[in-house]
Design a protein around this nucleic acid. Structure first.
Length: 638
RNA sequence: GCCGGGGUAGCUCAAUGGUAGAGCAAUCGCUUCGUAAGCGAUAGGUUGAGGGUUCGAGUCCCUUCUCCGGCUCCA
């Protein structure tokens, strides 16, 4: 007999029993939510056999390991269905992902909607049959032979990269796949699923390799959970900045006149202006100077900076004028360096913190453009800090502090921070890298920001911190960045005169808080679903006269608010009050002031928020003062 | 750039290879109304562009631009 501990219950069983049988004994029946177990902390199948003392912990869908097992098994089931329908299709890999699963197939048949429907139907059959997942361990060379015989060349390639002598296979029905596992015990555990989309994906993620067809899917233990998931996706789509940008008249793109180039409409432009004003004021407060630099420079400057070499593919082509070639700037840094080098700099004047809202152009590949998030022309809220090495810690702290301040002001709390360290190919001494990485690390910790380390993910010229914000569909976009640069100071020979009378190399830090105005605007639109905080709302107050008789009083009110520096408008159109409210609410105007005969008589207003709350008999003067204060405080709520 | 799917009125979408339509928005008129859509009329199109097949193309074929979803990339 062996000793088993499950859910704090201790008991004795025969050796050689399957996990699920042991648990059945322990629980006195089936545990329908159970997907797998941890045996002494290690994930294991319910079908596995136990012959020694062990401690079991249940794994269910409610935890992340449970989800990944569930989705991984679902991907096997999908592959089983595909192989049944098209035996000639070759399978590549099929993991679980953050939300759901995918499987990559090499198929002559292009998978379209109708194929997805067929696969779904076949999967349903497989689920009904309740086929068990069976694990088998065999020698690696035997596995290679087996997959070679089946023509599964991708599996063979994977196996050739595995060092272990023994590998495990999982079979479900007729479909056997190379897999570490664990898996759910049988196909019936998957209650509700949907194949979401099909997309191309390169084998092993390398664009030189063949493009495979990747089918994405999602699965849940109940139809209700699936419905809820699909509903959430629909709701997220309602937040898409491209849709809201049109509906709220914020910006446009004109593909026929240049993809990836953004036109800011009046309502978008006023938001940008507010953010810019705030940004500039905050920089001046924090010891930055502001710069303006040109949009073009002769090719020679970009040869020195290295852009014509390293980043050739993303530059707009040269313009020739009077026998000289010019390039539109993809970055601001070289210009700031040129300004730095107009004088012999002393150690006494460092650090120099130079900020610019610099508009740059990069020729991004056609397939990567995405609304405001990935564009070809954008304005970076860029700054370069030139400093002595002994100032590094202090300056990085200041960078992180202003980043945290900015993100907080705009109401962001859901973001990911990465510290990217030295890659294999790099320039600069190991000592200075370590020094800079340690400085970045301590500044993050000092700012109280949780971060992940992306080992080897730094740029060749220095380590960096990236902050990524999520969009409505959970895609992450980089906004803030702090990068230490050992490269440009070398290339441009950027120095200062030290107190020893000798020249020393400056340390240069690039940093952006918002990243680009375009991307940040896109993220803001989605974050607020277009219902912006009062201080950046394009129209802050909409006055709605009830009838024509009240137009005069309404205009009087509007003038009062405009006079106090607010953005107020009147809707004196020929609509009923309900329609006017509907229009203003859909435009996400924070406050509607309803002015009818009663209000006009008593010199009051009726206030309605875009959220639907109402308040009658409000003194406009008091209301105005309250709004002015909220704007001054940059309050996020209204 | 690659794979798949799209591009029809300002917007959102219809239209077995056989007369291009609807709703919203716009314009004009009526209506002057109490907290999320008042009524009627009018106007609006080289169906992304170019070529081809056909008696006939929004629809089928080719080229091209571009968008969407991914992949690769993102200094």
């Amino acid at each position: 007999m062996i000793g088993i501990k499950y859910n704090d219950k201790q008991f004795q069983v025969e050796p050689g029993l399957r996990v699920k049988e042991i648990i059945k004994q322990a629980e006195g029946g089936d545990s329908p939510n159970l997907l797998a177990v941890r045996v002494n902390g290690k994930l294991s199948d319910l079908n596995s056999v136990v012959d020694s003392d062990a401690q079991f912990e249940p794994v269910t869908f409610s935890e992340s390991d449970g989800k990944s097992i569930y989705w991984h098994s679902s991907s096997h089931l999908m592959a089983a269905a595909v192989k049944k329908l098209w035996p000639d299709v070759r399978v590549a890999i099929g993991p679980s992902i953050d939300e759901g699963f995918y499987y990559d197939f090499d198929s002559e048949v292009p998978f379209t909607e109708s194929e997805l429907a067929k696969i779904e139907a076949e999967m349903k059959k497989i689920l009904k049959e309740n086929l068990p997942f069976i694990r088998k361990e065999i020698r690696r060379d035997e596995a290679i032979k087996m997959f070679e015989a089946q023509g599964e060349k991708y599996k063979v390639e994977i196996l050739q990269g595995i060092a272990d002598e023994m590998v495990s296979l999982y079979s479900v029905g007729d479909f056997t796949d190379l897999c570490r596992g664990p898996h759910i015990p049988a196909s019936k555990k998957v209650k509700a699923f949907k194949l979401m989309k099909v997309a191309g994906a390169y084998w092993r993620g390398d664009e030189k390799n063949k493009m495979l067809q990747r089918i994405y899917g999602i699965a849940f233990p109940s139809q209700e959970l699936l419905d809820e998931y699909l509903k959430n996706i629909e709701e997220a789509k309602q937040r898409d900045h491209r849709k809201l940008g049109k509906e709220l008249d914020l910006f446009s793109l004109h593909e026929e006149h240049g993809p990836g180039l953004v036109y800011w409409h009046p309502k978008g432009a006023i938001i940008r202006k507010e953010i810019e004003d705030f940004w500039r004021a905050e920089h001046l407060k924090r010891g930055y100077d502001l710069l303006y630099t040109p949009h073009l420079a002769k090719v020679g400057l970009w040869d020195t900076s290295g852009h014509t070499g390293f980043y050739k593919d993303s530059l707009f082509p040269t313009m020739e004028m009077d026998h000289s070639d010019y390039l539109v700037k993809p970055m601001n840094c070289p210009f700031h360096i040129l300004i730095y080098k107009t004088q012999q700099r002393s150690y006494r004047e460092l650090p120099l913190r130079w900020a610019e809202l610099g508009t740059v152009y990069r020729f991004e590949k056609s397939g990567v453009l995405h609304g405001l998030m990935r564009v070809r022309g954008f304005t970076q809220d860029d700054a370069h800090i030139f400093m002595r090495e002994d100032q590094l810690d202090e300056e990085l702290n200041r960078c992180l502090d202003i980043i945290a301040f900015m993100l907080r002001t705009f109401g962001f709390s859901d973001y990911e921070i990465y510290l990217s360290t030295m890659p294999d190919e790099h320039i600069g001494e190991l000592a200075i890298w370590q020094r800079a990485e340690a400085a970045l690390r301590t500044s993050l910790e000092k700012a109280g920001l949780a971060y992940k380390v992306d080992a080897g993910g730094g740029a060749f010229y220095g380590p960096k911190i990236d902050i990524k914000i999520k969009d409505a569909l959970n895609r992450v976009w980089q906004c803030s960045t702090v990068q230490v640069d050992f490269n440009l100071p070398e290339r441009f020979d950027v120095n200062y005169r030290g107190n020893d009378g000798k020249d020393h190399r400056v340390i240069m830090v690039h940093r952006a808080l918002l990243g680009s105005f375009e991307r940040f605007f896109g993220v803001l639109i989605e974050h607020y679903k277009g219902a912006f905080p009062l201080w950046i709302s394009p129209v802050q107050v909409m006055v709605l006269p009830l009838t024509e008789r009240n137009n005069g009083y309404a205009k009087e009110l509007v003038d009062k608010f405009i006079g106090a520096g607010l953005r107020a408008k009147v809707d004196d159109g020929n609509d009923k009050i309900g329609a006017k409210i509907r229009t203003a609410t859909m435009q996400k105007v924070p406050y509607m002031l309803i002015a009818g005969d009663k209000e006009q008589e008593s010199r009051t207003v009726s206030v309605r928020k875009r959220t639907g709350e109402e308040e009658r008999d409000v003194d406009p003067e008091v209301f105005l003062k309250m709004l002015v204060q909220k704007i001054k405080d940059r309050e996020i709520g209204i």
